[in-house]
Amino acid sequence: MITEQEWPLFEVFIRARAGLEHKHVGSVHAADARMAIEHARDVYTRRQEGVSIWVVRSSDITASDPAESDSLFEPARDKVYRHPTFYSIPDEVKNL
């Protein structure tokens, strides 16, 4: 007897409508990518939530580590000059 294998897990990304980006919505199990698309259709788009689906094997995703959040994101914290509000321009100057 074959011992049953669990179908691999796929992460599902849906584009709500043309012009928007694909957004992560959850995951499904499926034997292969094509079946994952079909399952994602049934599970995540029963009410016209999407016009396009991406699936990717969860094991193929590399994610940042929360323990490294500080070293990754902290350097951006003191660079306020990247925002337009950092610069003070007199009110009488228009269209700037």
Binding site: I2, E4, Q5, W7, A30, A31, D32, M35
Partner: peptide
């Protein structure tokens, strides 16, 4: 449903 799950795995393996 067992045979369906197993068939799907076998099919995916064959395709790969």
């Amino acid at each position: 449903g067992r045979w369906v799950r197993e068939a799907a795995v076998a099919h995916a393996k064959k395709q790969r």
